[in-house]
Amino acid sequence: MPVAHLSDRGVVSVTGADAASLLQGLVTCDIDRLQPGEASLGALLTPQGKILFDFLIVHAPAGTLPGLENGGFLLDVAAASAADLAKRLNFYKLRAKVVVSNHGDDFAVAVRWNDEGPQLPGLVWVDPRLGALGQRAVAPAAAVAGTADADANAAHMAAWRAHRIALAVPEGGADYAFGDVFPHEADLDQLGAVAFDKGCYIGQEVVSRMHHRGTARTRMVAARLEADAIASQGDDIMAGEKRLGDIRARAGAHAIAMVRLDRYADALANNVTPTVGGAPVTLTRPVWATFDMAGN
Rank of each mutant, 00 (worst) to 15 (best):
residue 4 A to D: 00
residue 6 L to E: 02
residue 9 R to M: 15
residue 10 G to M: 10
residue 10 G to T: 06
residue 11 V to H: 04
residue 14 V to G: 07
residue 14 V to D: 08
residue 18 D to H: 01
residue 21 S to A: 13
residue 21 S to Y: 03
residue 24 Q to G: 06
residue 29 C to M: 07
residue 30 D to V: 01
residue 31 I to C: 09
residue 34 L to A: 04
residue 36 P to C: 06
residue 40 S to M: 08
residue 43 A to V: 07
residue 48 Q to Y: 10
residue 49 G to F: 03
residue 49 G to A: 05
residue 55 F to Y: 14
residue 57 I to D: 12
residue 57 I to N: 11
residue 61 P to Y: 11
residue 65 L to W: 07
residue 68 L to Y: 01
residue 68 L to Q: 02
residue 68 L to C: 04
residue 69 E to K: 05
residue 72 G to K: 02
residue 73 F to P: 02
residue 74 L to A: 14
residue 74 L to N: 08
residue 82 A to R: 01
residue 85 L to H: 01
residue 92 Y to P: 00
residue 93 K to Y: 15
residue 94 L to Q: 06
residue 94 L to H: 03
residue 97 K to T: 06
residue 99 V to S: 12
residue 102 N to T: 14
residue 103 H to A: 11
residue 104 G to T: 08
residue 106 D to W: 11
residue 108 A to E: 09
residue 112 R to L: 15
residue 113 W to Y: 02
residue 114 N to I: 05
residue 115 D to S: 10
residue 116 E to C: 06
residue 117 G to Y: 08
residue 117 G to N: 06
residue 118 P to M: 01
residue 119 Q to L: 05
residue 119 Q to T: 04
residue 122 G to H: 08
residue 125 W to G: 00
residue 126 V to K: 06
residue 126 V to M: 05
residue 136 R to N: 14
residue 137 A to T: 11
residue 139 A to L: 05
residue 140 P to S: 06
residue 142 A to Q: 13
residue 153 N to M: 06
residue 154 A to W: 11
residue 156 H to G: 03
residue 158 A to Y: 14
residue 159 A to P: 10
residue 159 A to I: 10
residue 162 A to N: 07
residue 166 A to L: 13
residue 169 V to A: 02
residue 169 V to M: 00
residue 175 D to L: 13
residue 176 Y to N: 11
residue 176 Y to K: 13
residue 177 A to W: 10
residue 178 F to A: 07
residue 178 F to V: 03
residue 188 L to P: 04
residue 190 Q to G: 08
residue 192 G to L: 06
residue 194 V to I: 15
residue 195 A to V: 04
residue 195 A to R: 01
residue 196 F to Q: 01
residue 198 K to Y: 09
residue 199 G to A: 10
residue 200 C to T: 02
residue 200 C to Q: 03
residue 202 I to P: 00
residue 203 G to I: 00
residue 205 E to Q: 02
residue 206 V to L: 05
residue 206 V to S: 00
residue 207 V to M: 05
residue 207 V to N: 03
residue 210 M to K: 02
residue 213 R to T: 15
residue 215 T to K: 07
residue 216 A to C: 09
residue 218 T to C: 08
residue 220 M to L: 15
residue 221 V to N: 04
residue 222 A to M: 07
residue 228 D to Q: 12
residue 228 D to L: 10
residue 240 G to K: 03
residue 245 G to F: 04
residue 248 R to K: 14
residue 253 A to Y: 04
residue 254 H to R: 07
residue 254 H to D: 15
residue 255 A to Y: 03
residue 260 R to T: 09
residue 261 L to M: 12
residue 262 D to F: 02
residue 263 R to A: 12
residue 263 R to T: 12
residue 267 A to W: 00
residue 269 A to T: 13
residue 273 T to N: 01
residue 274 P to H: 09
residue 274 P to D: 14
residue 275 T to Y: 14
residue 278 G to I: 08
residue 279 A to P: 04
residue 279 A to E: 06
residue 280 P to R: 02
residue 281 V to M: 08
residue 284 T to E: 12
residue 285 R to N: 10
residue 285 R to C: 15
residue 289 A to Q: 03
residue 289 A to M: 04
residue 290 T to L: 13
residue 291 F to Y: 08
residue 292 D to W: 13
residue 294 A to S: 05
residue 294 A to Y: 03
residue 295 G to N: 00
residue 295 G to A: 01
residue 295 G to H: 00
residue 295 G to Q: 00
residue 296 N to T: 09
residue 296 N to D: 05
